[in-house]
Amino acid sequence: MAAAAAAGAGPEMVRGQVFDVGPRYTNLSYIGEGAYGMVCSAYDNVNKVRVAIKKISPFEHQTYCQRTLREIKILLRFRHENIIGINDIIRAPTIEQMKDVYIVQDLMETDLYKLLKTQHLSNDHICYFLYQILRGLKYIHSANVLHRDLKPSNLLLNTTCDLKICDFGLARVADPDHDHTGFLTEYVATRWYRAPEIMLNSKGYTKSIDIWSVGCILAEMLSNRPIFPGKHYLDQLNHILGILGSPSQEDLNCIINLKARNYLLSLPHKNKVPWNRLFPNADSKALDLLDKMLTFNPHKRIEVEQALAHPYLEQYYDPSDEPIAEAPFKFDMELDDLPKEKLKELIFEETARFQPGYRS
């Protein structure tokens, strides 16, 4: 834990890192770190609560700039109880001085990944967590956004079992017609939660990839272990087919990539493993919904509104309290091709509203 900075004593240090967030945020305490930044909790002297502050230093890398800009653009436009918001952003007053960006968010005690390492969940908890994931996802999908990296560590939890989806750095506007060349190379989302079509096709992607990830998360809540822990690309596919069985001819016809289709045709026939054999203690309604989410063919996979209306979630289902976005989200430009200098300018502009004396 960093010592509390005395008023006016300059930035606090946390594990050798400068955290320049005073005077409003003090009493910093280390939480963890990701690929390009550290997260601390801090005391907000204005709202009198502890908050989470993520320090991001992305400006050396085009990919990190892209992810940072995506996350900020999306989260500043989203407003939903099951999606983490941005409360404040701290950065230098000029673009030349801006080396880091500090993002202030609600402090959540833990995440689903940490929880599943230590606790076996009751059916009631599984049901409530799944409902909140789908409630947040309904809003995301209504904005025409794909999260693309749903996994237990991106689901934040607090002691009252509130759940918030975080990390929109890989999110995209849904565009089933656009052929994202190089899709697989830039697709760094965790393999275990990846839909089979991501490994088999490169053309376009749809909201059904997020539903697949939610199915993987439900299976993990039922058993405290990942359902498809593939060691590499082909191993991942083999794990999936080992449980779902061989795809039907109709399902194979959806695979545009001939090499991928021929690979699947070359494999020995596998039978589907019954879900109640894998999860003998699970609620039968939970397994019915799991089956509809972990469907090989993305066109037959359940959609988020149908999933919310499934009998497993009937005690929570309330369409009048499951809000959607006001308007579909649009990125003005494809960020993939922009140089990091341009992305830095866009991050600077996007964060201006939090600067003292800002006038829109």
Rank of each mutant, 00 (worst) to 15 (best):
P196G: 02
E220H: 04
D88H: 10
A219H: 03
K259F: 03
E186K: 01
F331L: 00
I83T: 14
V145N: 09
I86R: 09
Y233V: 03
G245C: 00
I72W: 06
I103N: 02
A92D: 04
V101M: 00
L76D: 13
H269M: 09
L265K: 12
P356Y: 15
I302M: 11
I211Y: 03
K138N: 00
L244K: 08
A352S: 03
H141I: 10
Q97P: 07
V18R: 14
S153R: 01
P298A: 12
K270G: 09
K73D: 04
E81P: 12
K151D: 08
F279S: 01
L244G: 04
D235R: 02
F183R: 08
I240A: 07
L28A: 09
P11I: 15
L244S: 05
A325S: 02
I89M: 12
M333I: 00
H80F: 13
L146S: 06
Q306P: 13
I347A: 12
F129D: 04
L294Y: 03
M98S: 14
T94S: 00
K54M: 00
L107T: 04
K285M: 12
H232G: 11
K203T: 06
G182N: 07
D321N: 02
Q66T: 12
V304A: 05
N257G: 08
C216D: 04
A325R: 10
N154E: 01
A174L: 11
N87L: 14
E349N: 15
N47V: 08
D177E: 01
L75M: 00
L258S: 11
P247C: 13
G242P: 03
Y25H: 08
R50I: 15
Q236G: 03
L289D: 05
S57H: 15
P274Q: 00
I227S: 03
K285I: 00
F329K: 13
D291A: 06
S208P: 03
H180S: 05
K117E: 07
T160Q: 10
T185H: 04
V21Y: 04
T295P: 00
Q17F: 12
H80Y: 09
T68Q: 11
R225N: 14
S122M: 10
W275Y: 08
K73Y: 05
Y131L: 11
F228C: 10
D175S: 09
P323K: 14
L218P: 01
Y128L: 02
P274M: 07
I74W: 03
A92S: 01
K300E: 06
L278W: 12
P298F: 14
H232T: 09
G204Q: 07
I198C: 04
T181P: 04
R225V: 11
E322N: 15
Y312F: 00
Q62Y: 10
A52N: 08
L313I: 13
H232E: 04
A143L: 08
G136R: 01
T159V: 06
E81D: 00
L155R: 07
H125P: 05
V39T: 07
M13N: 06
A42G: 13
F183P: 05
A6G: 09
K270F: 11
A307D: 02
L115H: 14
I95R: 13
E71C: 09
I133C: 10
C166Q: 03
I255N: 01
D100S: 15
P311V: 13
A2Q: 15
N238L: 04
V214G: 04
L150D: 03
E33I: 15
P176L: 03
K54Q: 04
F19S: 01
D100R: 13
E197W: 03
N281I: 00
K114Q: 03
F168I: 00
I198W: 03
A195Y: 07
V18I: 04
N253L: 06
D175E: 01
M98L: 02
H178K: 05
E109D: 00
K164R: 04
P280S: 03
P328E: 07
R77T: 12
E314T: 15
V273E: 00
T159K: 05
D336R: 05
D336P: 15
P328M: 08
P58V: 14
Y36R: 07
H125D: 01
S213E: 05
I256F: 01
V304L: 08
Q17R: 11
H310C: 14
E197S: 02
D20M: 11
K292A: 12
E33P: 06
T181W: 06
A325C: 14
F19C: 03
T110F: 15
I53N: 01
I31K: 14
K151N: 02
Y205D: 02
I198M: 04
P319F: 10
F348W: 11
H141C: 09
P339N: 06
L146D: 04
L200M: 00
L146V: 07
N154D: 04
P280T: 00
H141D: 10
Q62P: 04
K285H: 10
D177K: 13
P311S: 02
E250Y: 14
A42R: 05
L137C: 12
E71P: 14
Q97S: 12
V173M: 02
E345R: 13
L290I: 12
S223I: 12
L69N: 14
L252Y: 11
L343R: 07
A171E: 03
L289Q: 01
A52Y: 07
G22Y: 06
Y113T: 13
L267Q: 01
C161Q: 05
H299P: 04
K285Y: 09
V145I: 10
L244V: 14
V39Y: 04
M108K: 00
L130D: 03
R70Q: 04
Y205M: 01
R135I: 14
L163W: 08
E349I: 15
L28Y: 10
L335M: 03
Q236I: 03
L76W: 15
H180M: 07
L237C: 08
Q236F: 03
I255S: 07
L308N: 10
S223T: 01
K342A: 12
I74N: 00
K272M: 07
L267P: 06
L335E: 13
L76T: 15
I209F: 00
Q355C: 14
V18F: 06
T159D: 08
P328R: 08
F354H: 05
E303N: 15
Y233W: 08
G8Q: 05
H180W: 07
A143N: 12
L308W: 06
A309H: 14
L287M: 00
Y128Q: 06
L107C: 13
P93S: 05
E197H: 04
R91Q: 12
Y131K: 15
L289I: 12
M199V: 10
Q249E: 08
L107N: 08
L252N: 11
F183W: 11
D321E: 05
L267Y: 13
P328C: 11
F78T: 13
E305F: 14
Q97E: 09
V51E: 10
A174I: 12
E220P: 03
P229A: 09
T118S: 01
L150Y: 11
L115W: 12
L252P: 01
Q17N: 12
S202E: 03
H80L: 00
I74F: 00
A42Y: 15
A52K: 02
R70Y: 10
S41R: 13
L289R: 06
A6H: 13
C40I: 15
V101N: 04
T190Q: 03
P323T: 03
K272G: 09
N276I: 00
S153G: 13
H239V: 12
T181E: 05
D251M: 07
P323M: 13
Q132K: 00
D167K: 06
I89W: 06
D336N: 02
K117C: 07
P11Y: 13
V18N: 14
E305G: 13
R91P: 14
N47Q: 05
D235G: 09
P328D: 06
Q97V: 12
R353F: 13
A307V: 08
N87F: 12
Q315C: 15
K342P: 14
F228M: 11
Y205P: 04
V188Q: 01
V51M: 12
R15S: 00
K259A: 04
K259Y: 04
V14T: 13
R24D: 13
K55L: 08
L237D: 06
A174N: 09
D106I: 15
G34A: 03
A6I: 10
D106M: 15
G204E: 02
Q132A: 05
V304H: 09
S213P: 05
M221C: 11
G169A: 02
I217D: 03
L244H: 09
D337G: 15
R148W: 03
L346R: 14
R172A: 02
T159G: 09
T185V: 04
P328Y: 06
L200W: 13
V49Q: 09
A52I: 02
D100L: 12
Y316I: 15
H125L: 00
A6R: 05
V51C: 09
Q17E: 11
F354C: 11
M293H: 03
A7N: 14
I209C: 01
